[in-house]
């Protein structure tokens, strides 16, 4: 998520209208928040349903982190 935001920061096309810039910035922040929510879900809640191809791998990889931070685990 950081390369995404960094890339957009570095490319302020033209001196656009402040309102346009503000809308764009808020959209980037909203996108980052959605990504963050997905990441937290993947790490703390998913039991192998998020992407069927990952099966239990995601769950098992974050297994110790779940226990440590108090998220329910099997």
């Amino acid at each position: 998520m950081s390369p995404h935001t960094a890339g957009t920061t570095a490319a302020p096309q033209a001196p656009s209208h402040p309102a346009t810039v503000r809308t764009r910035d808020w959209m980037i922040v909203a996108a980052a928040a959605v990504l963050a929510l997905i990441a937290l879900y993947a790490v703390f809640v998913d039991n192998g349903n998020l992407v069927s191809a990952t099966g239990g791998y995601l769950h098992e990889f974050s297994h110790d982190g779940r226990h440590l931070f108090g998220a329910p685990c099997h």
Partner: peptide, 15 residues
Amino acid sequence: GLVVTAVVVGLALGV
């Protein structure tokens, strides 16, 4: 995985 998970959680909380 524990360290990676902690970093992912940290980044998400940072947002």
